[in-house]
Design a protein around this nucleic acid. Sequence first.
RNA 1: GGGGUAGUGGCGAAAUCGGUAGACGCAGCGGCCUUAAAAGCCGCAGUCCCCUGGGACGUGUGGGUUCGAGUCCCACCUACCCCA
Length: 860
Amino acid sequence: MTNAYEPRAIEAKWQDRWEAQGTFRAANPGDPGFDPQAPKYYVLDMFPYPSGAGLHVGHPMGYIGSDVVTRRKRAEGFNVLHPMGYDAFGLPAEQYAIQTGQHPAQTTAANIATYRRQLKLVGLSYDWERELTTSDPAYYRWTQWIFARLYDRGLAYQAEVPVWWCEALKTVLSNEEVINGRSERGDHPCERRPLKQWMLKITAYADRLLDDLDLVDWPESVKTMQREWIGRSEGAEIDFEVDGLEDQRLTVFTTRPDTLFGATFMVVAPEHPLVRQLTTDAQRAAVEGYVEAASSKSDLERTDLAKEKSGVFTGSFAVNPAFEAGDERGKIPIWVADYVLISYGSGAIMAVPGQDQRDWDFAEQYGLSIVRTVQPTPNFEGKAFTGNGPAINSGFLDGMGVADAKAAMIAHLERSGLGRSKVNYRLRDWLFSRQRYWGEPFPVLHRADGSHLRVPDAELPVELPEMVDFAPPDDGSPPLSKAVDWVRATDPATGQTVTRDTDTMPGWAGSCWYYLRFMDPHNASAPFSKEAANYWGNVDLYVGGTEHAVLHLLYARFWHKVLFDEGLVPTKEPFQQLFNQGMLTAFAYKDGTGRLVSGDEVEFKGDVAVHRETGEALEQVVAKMSKSLKNVVNPDDVCEQYGVDTFRLYEMFMGPLADSKPWNPRDVPGCRRFLDKLWRLLIDGNTDQPVRPHLAAAAVGEPQGAAADLERSLARALKRVDDSFKAFNFNTAIAALMTFVNDAGKASDALRRDQAERLVQALAPFAPHLAEELWERLGHTESLARAPWPTYDPKWLIESEVEFAVQVNGKLRGTVVAAKDLDQAALAELAVAAAGKHLEGKNIVKTIVVPGRLVNFVAK
RNA sequence: GGGGUAGUGGCGAAAUCGGUAGACGCAGCGGCCUUAAAAGCCGCAGUCCCCUGGGACGUGUGGGUUCGAGUCCCACCUACCCCA
């Protein structure tokens, strides 16, 4: 046994032992060692997409934070489920594969190996026997199975929808992959094109997705983002008859039916199906040119308030149903303009310039009439008035407030059959297919007559065919269509030849339910057993970045609710508490020309960063870690140089877990020094004793003298450690432990064995390897992973003497040490003396005493 | 344009309720130990001013409430995020 702190040796020893002894294995009901008395706790990290670059020090921050919680919960006696896996299907692997010719299955496997090695290096206490990979057929078999449930419930359907098509890349791209009408990769032009796609009817769950946000303990900001994304708005659907189109009506959604009398024109989106019929011959050339130009613009470009509006008159007129038949005011022109989106509402609007700024701008630009139908407030100086006020110029609505006028107009429209109240959502159905190779195949067969049926459950998984050339074909068909033998299949009902669906699911699919598979990861007859789902319930704590605040969390909630309706899960919501860790940034350095200087060329002269070779002073900036900024820090290097425990400790010591903060390599050694100091506190490096002799045996009775002082210090530290779990500000926990170790270092002979043990236990979540080693040296033969969480007697927190601040008119003028409960008169007397000359020549008007804190004299 | 979050020493940060701003750590300075260095230990350390003791200022800026404001209110500036 060596007696110096050698982190790498200790860390390897304990990681091996944890693995060999299955220390972090979570027992399911029925498993050996399952304790029905123990409460359960499920801590989940958002699992990573394994990219080729491996992990940088920012990735494990949330993982370490959740591991700290996990280890404490285990010590508190919970049966903790804490698993990890890989979100392994998706576009980047496929793009890389097309470029390099390597199969995505190979690169994905290599990337996962790197991730696994790095995650294990950091000593995260996952139950590795539950590890899963979404691209594994044993996993995606059940992703397809869940899709089949959606299909059977009518929640999956195929539809022609406008999607971004990139001709150069021969593929459909998602909205996120198209910037200003050009592809993010390669900067190729893209256009909107209607294509047949799989859609999931998430809109059928819109209200539940909205309402059930009240059931979960999530950051308000994330709930707000989800509410805005769902975008529920109440209003009315109104039908407009069109001159010369007897059999068609133009239907719009509006949140302001009360303003119908002010609807002076209509606007349809360029993609609106009636555009062709609405356009008169005289206007046809102009309209067709406009529609063509609009197809390459992004939604953001089209709807930006600051941008100038554009549009073209169709030549047709609609009839505003607010007016009596034949009233000339009710004949309003229909325009095509791209500030109206086909994807929102019905793709057509009634334009009310008096109460809508975008409509006002458009009306001004094209000389269309503007009628106010809500009386603006007296000093109103703007153009469109969106506030509340009495209706004007509105016939039977005149004088009513906005809310009453809405109700009255809806009632009026319902009587005439030209409108009805309607709830509209910004949320669209989920475009669920990709014309790509590296994803889950749809378990669907197509018959010659155009109908489709799903593959029977017993025949799942529909495995991806082995393909050498999976690049998208030139004609725009999906890569899987080239796997001719695979495409040909047999109809299980009729025995006739049918074809397989050749789309694949998007990257989001596998992550929609992975938290459920973790509950029962090896089940070969179901995605997870009912017993497992009932026992583990939902995820108690879900830790990840804000970048998933909307899409992943919304999609997973949707699938969860479908599974709830299937009776497969017992909870309405998948993730009870959500925590977003902050982003880890890093310093980057620029020279005088603004060029970035690589981290290894920077050295410090005192506080100033200078170029190692030229000596030039460099400007320090804070930025996200990225290759291009040359500021990526690799966890392998940090662990190699300082040890894993130092790495973990520093990540938690930097600041609150929720904050974004910069990695400062100069701060890391301080955390190592603390661990060295703590080691020396318990171990004499000059002997071969496992611990210092006075720690070998238990102390008897109450701590006295210096040991009592240490007990007070320890109690304060343990309280602060406990408190840090409320807001995940583990930096304060570590600071408290540092303070205790400093105190104990000054009276090391007085430190009692029970105090040393509690110190080690409290440290364990942050520096688990060192803590295990010290625990063993203190004579324990069992891992401390399930040793009880340390406690203290609250009486040690009570202080009899405290320092009171003495203020005169709110300014600090001295201090007084006195009994905490000294009566106010006696305390004031002491305080007057302490204030001394600051009270000379003044009358004390008032004396304010805050018990245990301060005395403030108001004096003139 | 609307909404959210944040702004505290040279740096990361702390301050649970409106009550001694800067705990803890980094970097820095001084000392001890050492032949020397490293490590360790002890001490100093917001800024400015007379430098004995102290005084003035100080939590992005400007106001306000209060005996007392980093903390509460109003306006503004800056950064990041979300929505349009």
